[in-house]
Computed example of a mutant assay.
Amino acid sequence: MTPANNKSAKKVPVLEAFIKAKCPRCRRGDIYSTPTYGFSAQRMHERCSHCNLHYEREPGYWYVAMFVSYTFNVAEMVTFAVGTHILTGSNSPWLYVGVLMAVVFLLSPFNYRYSRVALLYWLTPGLNYEPWRAEDKAPLPGDGKAGEKPD
């Protein structure tokens, strides 16, 4: 069965797969092996456990995630600074410094994780969702085996 005529694959919603940090190609395998918040460092799988996608597309690929994380930080800081001003009306710079440092500290694990997931989902050319790969025994074109062909 080829990907073009396979209509039985269940399409996983992109937002649900993004939030759960699933593989962007099959949306079944986990990207991370650890939870977002915990006492251990966050660890990524090297490959998708379902479709065998290699997550690090090229050497230095994750450096771009720093720019995505920076964008997340700026958006969060502006949001919380405006929210603090609306709620308190204070002009004290120490209040804003305290609130924003707490926000940066508390959201850094979230930013680390989702900057990489966003990079994989929306900022990597040529990496698209392929619903037929989400099946349990999806054949790879020209391979004849389920999920063993490395990218």
Rank of each mutant, 00 (worst) to 15 (best):
W62C: 00
W62E: 01
P93S: 10
M66R: 10
G38D: 12
A65D: 07
Y55H: 09
P24Y: 09
S90G: 08
G83Y: 09
V14Y: 12
L87W: 11
V82R: 01
F39C: 03
E46H: 13
T84I: 03
I19C: 07
V14T: 11
R57C: 00
V103S: 02
V12R: 13
M66W: 13
T84W: 07
F110M: 13
Y55Q: 08
R113N: 10
N73H: 04
V14H: 12
N91K: 11
Y70C: 09
V103M: 12
T88Y: 09
H50S: 05
E16S: 13
Y63G: 01
C26H: 01
E46I: 09
V99F: 08
E76C: 14
T34E: 14
W62M: 00
V68I: 14
I19N: 09
Q42M: 12
R43E: 14
V104K: 03
G38Y: 00
C51W: 02
W94R: 05
R47A: 03
R43F: 04
M44Q: 14
Q42L: 07
A65H: 03
R47I: 07
S90W: 11
T79G: 12
V97T: 05
S92H: 10
W94T: 04
F72W: 03
A65K: 06
Y55P: 02
V64D: 00
V82F: 12
E76D: 05
I86V: 14
A41N: 10
M101L: 15
M101P: 02
G60F: 01
G29S: 08
